[in-house]
Design a protein around this nucleic acid. Structure first.
Length: 514
RNA sequence: GCGCCUCUAGCUCAAUGGCAGAGCAACGGACUCUUAAUCCGCAGGUUCUGGGUUCGAAUCCCAGGGGGCGCACCA
């Protein structure tokens, strides 16, 4: 409002020195900042506090999308959005306005708004936020429009938008200036809408199954629940080292001990490892635990979650995997890890075999075996080297050796294997689950093996978590557990090739501002 | 960490050893049904940074920085 105090503004405040003043961007910013000063001098706040709209742009399109061409209505609406395009016709201006989920054309006639407002609208820059009131209409060509009566600037854009047709293409700029990417690239907006829909779908599905959503600590005294290098941090008041969590698992299972029966968490985990098209140092996991079930129950839940998420996010269960249309609604293939290795090597393998025999087989297939690896680890390495990357259609790989699965329960039919699965799609691991080990005596032995591996120099190995063992000693019912990589699932459903396209602000080196 | 590629106007891109250019955006002008509006005019440059070769470097070489891809790491 005009009575609001306007802080003193001076163009000389701008940190643009005289030598730079003639340069393109500086010149453009100066011009727009000059508009701000002029508005303030005239008693108008270029950044007003609020605007009440009657409709979103999608509302208008839904309600009036069927209007015939050249229709004038008496329906008065108030809308708000960012002005992205402007087509000046002399005494008529067409502009494109966009809000969160729609767009619409503004029809501005000099005869209706008068000379002063017409000139003000003409002086707006692409990128400015505006609030508009007017009547719903269609043009002679049939374009749904708002015949503008009044228009107010809601926020001035001082920087110019990216190219109106090509948007932003430079990956560096797209990730660093995600705001500009979202303004100018439809594909970016689409990917993050899909991400939201998937997470919302998970919550809906799990709530319907009586799962409770919980939040467990991100700061851990011990980084357990997976094999990965953690980020280290420090608590000042307690003067103690802490780790950012690498998994959600051990706290959620404590809640199963506590009797919550069905819990899940969707949360960020942190792994201090390489960055690639499939890895970001912080990423989002969904883990759930269901009392009285085993790994077959959580495999079924995995399929159900995937199908519902795809339907909710993109309206179909058909997704593209490396150029092949694949229906997620079909039951996922199930195959044991040892059978995949046998298939690739032509030799039946099993963790009970002599280590030397497996090592020779691995050598033959150029899998380099490290001295501390046991038979189970050798089998897994052969699986990863020979079979994993070829698993395109969704495949549950099951029966991981005990050696590499310290938290999973031994297979009821084979003491060398666990009741575990990993889900692979497009050659990538998307999920991991098992019948949870709930015998505290056996869990202690498994932890002690981990501790030995860590002391032998394996930085990813775990340690003995005494509190977790104490929890198990109170008794954990039979439980099935599942973890799903939400980022990779989103990549699959959105059909994007890199994890940076579905993480709003991926990890980058810090930008240097001069 | 290693290898390959890449970095030019606000944005999208040309120029491959010989005068740094175009489109969009901006600026000035024309236009009352356009929609990537159109048309006329004008302006905008530390070619990522530093060094070198050369009569001459955006271009070739060296070093550094950002980014991409691949490898390694990621049980």
């Amino acid at each position: 409002m005009s009575s609001e105090p306007t802080p003193p503004q001076d163009a000389a405040d701008e940190p643009i020195d005289a030598a730079e003043h003639a340069r393109g961007l500086s010149l453009e910013r100066s011009r727009r900042l000059g508009q701000l000063d002029a508005m303030r001098s005239a008693g108008t706040n270029p950044y007003p506090y609020r605007f009440d709209r009657t409709h979103t742009l999608a509302d208008i399109r839904k309600e009036f999308g069927a209007l015939e061409a050249a229709t004038e209505t008496e329906v008065h609406v108030e809308v708000a959005g960012r002005m992205l395009l402007k087509r000046d016709q002399g005494k008529l201006i067409f502009a494109s306005l966009r809000d969160r989920d729609g767009d619409i054309q503004l029809f501005v006639s000099k005869a209706i708004v008068g000379d002063e407002l017409f000139d003000a609208i003409n002086a707006l820059d692409l990128g400015d936020w505006v609030g508009v009131s007017g009547l719903v209409m269609t043009t002679r060509k049939g374009e749904l429009s708002i015949k503008v009566n009044k228009l107010v600037l809601l926020a001035k854009a001082v920087r110019p938008l990216p190219d109106k047709w090509h948007g932003l293409t430079d990956p560096d700029t797209r990730y660093r200036q995600r705001y500009a990417d979202l303004i100018s690239n439809d594909e970016a907006r689409r990917a993050f809408a899909i991400r939201h829909a998937i997470i919302a779908s998970f919550r809906k599905t799990l709530s319907a199954k009586s799962f409770i959503e919980v939040e467990t600590p991100v700061l851990h005294a011990e980084a357990g629940g997976a094999h990965a290098r953690p980020f280290n941090t420090h608590h000042n008041a307690l003067d103690m080292p802490l780790f950012l969590r690498i998994a959600l698992e051990l706290h959620l299972k404590r809640l199963i001990v506590g009797g919550m029966e069905r819990v899940y968490e969707i949360g960020r985990v942190f792994r201090n490892e390489g960055i690639s098209t499939r890895h970001n140092p912080e990423f989002t996991m969904m883990e759930l635990y269901q009392a009285f079930g085993d790994y077959s129950d959580v495999m079924a839940i995995t399929e159900e979650l995937f199908v519902a998420a795809a339907l909710d996010a993109i309206g179909t269960t058909i997704v593209d995997i490396n150029g092949t249309a694949t229906d997620l609604a079909e039951p996922f293939r199930r195959v044991r890890m040892i059978d995949l290795v046998a298939e690739k090597t032509g030799v039946a393998v099993h963790p009970s075999m002599e280590r030397e025999e497996l090592r020779a087989l691995a050598d033959k297939h150029n899998v380099h075996v490290q001295p501390q690896w046991g038979t189970g680890k050798i089998i897994e390495e052969m699986f990863e080297a020979l079979a994993e990357h070829e698993l395109m259609a969704p495949t549950f790989v099951t029966g991981h050796p005990v050696e590499i699965s310290p938290l999973a329960r031994v297979d009821r039919n084979d003491p060398f294997l666990t009741e575990r699965f990993e889900l692979f799609v497009g050659g990538r691991e998307l999920a991991n689950g098992y019948s949870e080990l709930n015998d505290p005596i056996e869990q202690r032995l498994r932890f002690e093996d981990e501790q030995k591996a860590k002391e032998a120099g394996n930085a990813e190995a775990g340690t003995v978590d005494e509190d977790y063992l104490r929890a198990l000693e109170f008794g954990m019912p039979p439980t099935g557990g599942l973890g799903i990589g939400m980022d990779r699932l989103t990549m699959l459903i959105a059909g994007v090739p890199t994890i940076r396209d579905i993480i709003l602000f991926p990890t980058l080196r810090p930008e240097v501002f001069e």
